[in-house]
Structures are given as structure tokens and as C-alpha cells.
Design a protein around this nucleic acid. Sequence first.
DNA 1: TCTAAAATTTAGCCTTGGCTAAACTGGAGC
DNA 2: GCTCCAGTTTAGCCAAGGCTAAATTTTAGA
Lengths: 133, 133
Amino acid sequence: MRVKSRKFTQLRNAHHREKAEDYVEMIQDLADQQGEARLTDVAKRFGVSTVTAHKILFRLQREKWITSKPYRAIFLTPRGKRLAMESKRRHKIVYQFLKKIGVPEEIAQIDAEGMEHHVSSETLKILRRRLKK
Amino acid sequence: MRVKSRKFTQLRNAHHREKAEDYVEMIQDLADQQGEARLTDVAKRFGVSTVTAHKILFRLQREKWITSKPYRAIFLTPRGKRLAMESKRRHKIVYQFLKKIGVPEEIAQIDAEGMEHHVSSETLKILRRRLKK
DNA sequence: TCTAAAATTTAGCCTTGGCTAAACTGGAGC
DNA sequence: GCTCCAGTTTAGCCAAGGCTAAATTTTAGA
């Protein structure tokens, strides 16, 4: 039978995963900066309505990246934290590499944002090695 | 008033543009390799159903990247060709840069695929300069 | 030429991620 | 304790991009 349970697959596709990574990363940032992550702040940072952010966070909760009770702050689950850390690490390496080869800071920031999701671990290793030199 | 005509904006968002770039690039490739691009081949290359490919191509036609008559091959408009060329150029530079810094070919191919859409022209210039050295 | 297979299109379904409008809750301040 | 406001949630809309089933057209072969 045709795997109806695909509905419950953790990460349906690449685009889907990118969203998850972006959001958990942001939630971690907000937690670090303000003690906790609130829906309104998440929405503001991504430049979307609270309704859109709420929907996405609802999905992330369904997929066990985050937890939250109604009208309360958002928290990362252990695996959400792991994903956030990996994403942040990836981001940082790409960003620093870009700066190292001469890309201006603001541009490196923007480009890294988009590129981080598409850099394989093999390539990441190579970037990291080059950073040390 | 709140720009209802946003509905007719050429490229609604980044993800939207990426799809357009991927498809025009593929259509150009198919035209080069087989003389013309057929729906079935496009769908096969992207690993989606012909129905999905058809829908996307319909949108690209609406947005004047391509032309085609019912049941016939697909052709790029002049601006479609320009987009395809730019995309291919971008892709090639990223791919070659990755290979140059030591990323294995197959991995460079995959990573370049994803990264090409997120590399700003400033960063691209820097990559190109490094390639020449 | 005619028929069957292949290619294309249409109909209709789903999920995601956008939005606005409207309802609901929690908490601060009186 | 009550009220009101900010924050959150729900309802309901839309487009894109995924699918299968079914209809239609083209084309190749007998």
C-alpha cells in the first residue's frame, strides 16, 4: 500500500527542512537574547504575520522540533536544539568563509543565509579547513 | 491602495524565482542536447509527474519565460533565454569554484545546484576572480 | 488509413505558507 | 476584582506545487 504515513514523515522535502532550520535557529537566538521566544517576535523577525508564524510553529510542534502551550512562549525540544546548533554552526562557517575570501560583511550575511541549507557536510568540512589557514 | 496587482508581479518570491531559473536552465539544456524540450523530458529530469511539470510550465508561460503551443515542444522567449544563460553562468562559476577548493565533482554538482540561487552578484564576482588565479 | 500507444492536458484532490478579519486569553493597572 | 490591551489563536481566503485518474491529441506502425 502506498504509504499513507508519508503524512507523518518528519521532513517532507528540502524546502520544508529549510523552514524548520530557519525557525529553530531563530527561536534559539531569541531565547539567548531575550530569555524566551514569543510568537510575535518570531513573526517580526521573519517579516511575516503572526498568523503565518503561528501556522509554521504549529507544524514544527507537530513534528517535535518545539513545544509550547497555548498563549505561552516557545521552547526547543532536545532534537530541536540539536538542529538549531547544527544550523547555526553551518551558517557561521559559510559566513566566515565568505568574509575570508573578501565578501563584504552585510552581503556575506545575506548570502550565507540562503547558502547554508545547500552546503553538504563534505563541502562544509573543506570550508572549515580553509578557514583555519 | 494595497496593490492588488501584486497578483501579476513577475516573481512573487525567492522560491518562485528559483523554480523559474531551474526550469529555463533545464529547457535550454534539453534544447541543446535533443533539439527541443518536451514536457515529458522536463518532468523526467526533475523527477516530478508530467502534470506537475505542466502546471509549472503553464505558469512560466503566463510569466513570459517560455512559449509553447498545445501538445508541442517548449521554447524559451528572449528573456527566458537571458535568464537561462545567467543561471547557467552562475551555476558554472559556483561549481568550478567548489571543485577548485577541493570538493569532489559529484558533490560539487549537487551543492552548486542549491547554492547558485543564493549567491549575490558581488560574491559571484569574487568567486570568478578566485577561479582565474 | 486506422488504430493503438505515447504524450499532453484537464479535473480534482492535498499540504504548505502567505494574508485579513475576528475571536479569545492573560496580565497590567486601576 | 475588573477592564482593557497586547498577544495569540481560529476561520477562511488564495496560489504554488505535489499527486492520481481520466480525457484528449499526436504520432508511429501495421
